[in-house]
Amino acid sequence: DEVRLHVNGHTIEFRGIDEEIFKILEEAAKRGADEEELRRLAEKLLR
């Protein structure tokens, strides 16, 4: 299960996240989070 999030012209792939987590990451990206911040956030949410 892989999703792709487009951030500042880059595509970031995440594996094993559900739609709810994806929406949180998408919102963070809209607020200016970079790839590293998004990955840290995803790790926290998946715990």
Rank of each mutant, 00 (worst) to 15 (best):
D34R: 08
R40C: 05
D18N: 14
R4G: 04
E13F: 12
E35N: 05
D34N: 11
E27G: 09
D1C: 11
K30P: 00
N8S: 04
A42D: 00
A29S: 06
L25Q: 00
E13G: 05
G16K: 02
H10K: 14
E37Q: 12
V3R: 15
H10F: 09
I12R: 00
R47G: 08
F14H: 01
K44Y: 15
G16P: 03
V7T: 03
E26Q: 14
L45T: 02
L25A: 00
H6C: 11
E35K: 05
L41C: 05
A28I: 06
N8G: 07
A28E: 07
R39Q: 05
A33M: 12
L45W: 08
L45E: 02
E35S: 06
H6A: 06
L25W: 01
K23S: 08
K23Y: 09
D1A: 10
K23I: 07
E19M: 14
D1I: 13
L38G: 00
E20Q: 13
L5E: 02
D34V: 09
V3T: 07
R40D: 08
L45H: 04
A28F: 14
R4V: 10
D18P: 14
R40S: 12
E37P: 01
F22A: 06
L45R: 02
R31Q: 12
L5G: 01
T11P: 05
F14Q: 01
K44D: 07
A42F: 11
E36C: 08
E19K: 09
A28P: 00
H10R: 09
F22M: 06
L46C: 06
R4H: 14
V7C: 04
A42M: 08
T11I: 14
R39G: 04
E26D: 06
K30N: 09
A33K: 05
A29D: 00
L5H: 01
G32L: 03
A29G: 05
E2H: 12
L46G: 04
E36M: 13
G16A: 03
R15F: 13
T11H: 07
R31S: 10
L5C: 05
V3M: 15
E37W: 12
R31H: 12
I24A: 08
I17H: 02
I21V: 09
K44A: 07
E36V: 12
E36Y: 15
L41W: 06
R39K: 07
E43S: 14
D1V: 12
L25N: 00
E27C: 13
L45Q: 02
E35P: 08
G32A: 01
G32H: 02
V3I: 12
E37V: 10
K23A: 08
A28Y: 15
L25K: 00
H10L: 11
L25V: 04
H10C: 05
L45M: 07
D18V: 05
N8K: 05
A33H: 06
D34C: 05
L41I: 10
E20L: 11
D34S: 13
E43N: 13
V7F: 06
K30A: 07
R31T: 10
E27I: 10
L38Q: 00
R15A: 08
L38M: 03
I12C: 04
L38A: 00
L38E: 00
R47A: 11
R15G: 07
E26Y: 14
G16H: 06
R15H: 13
V3P: 06
H10V: 14
E43W: 15
E36D: 12
I21C: 09
I21A: 10
G16R: 02
R40M: 11
E27Y: 15
A42L: 09
I21F: 06
G16C: 07
R47I: 10
L46E: 03
H10E: 09
N8E: 05
L38W: 03
G16D: 08
R15D: 07
K23N: 06
D34I: 07
I24T: 06
A33Y: 12
K30G: 08
G16L: 03
T11Q: 06
N8H: 05
I12W: 01
L25I: 06
R47Y: 12
E27D: 10
H6N: 12
T11F: 15
E26K: 14
L25P: 00
L25R: 00
R47S: 10
N8F: 02
V3K: 15
E19Y: 13
A42Y: 14
E19N: 11
F22Q: 05
L41D: 00
R15P: 12
F22V: 07
L46Q: 08
H6T: 14
N8I: 03
H6Q: 13
K44G: 06
A33L: 10
E2S: 13
N8C: 06
G16Y: 05
L45G: 01
F14D: 01
E36W: 15
I21G: 12
F22W: 06
R39M: 12
K30M: 12
K30V: 07
D1M: 14
A28M: 10
L46V: 10
G16I: 04
E13T: 14
K23R: 13
V3F: 15
E2L: 15
A28K: 05
D18E: 06
A42R: 01
H6M: 08
H6L: 09
R39C: 06
A28H: 11
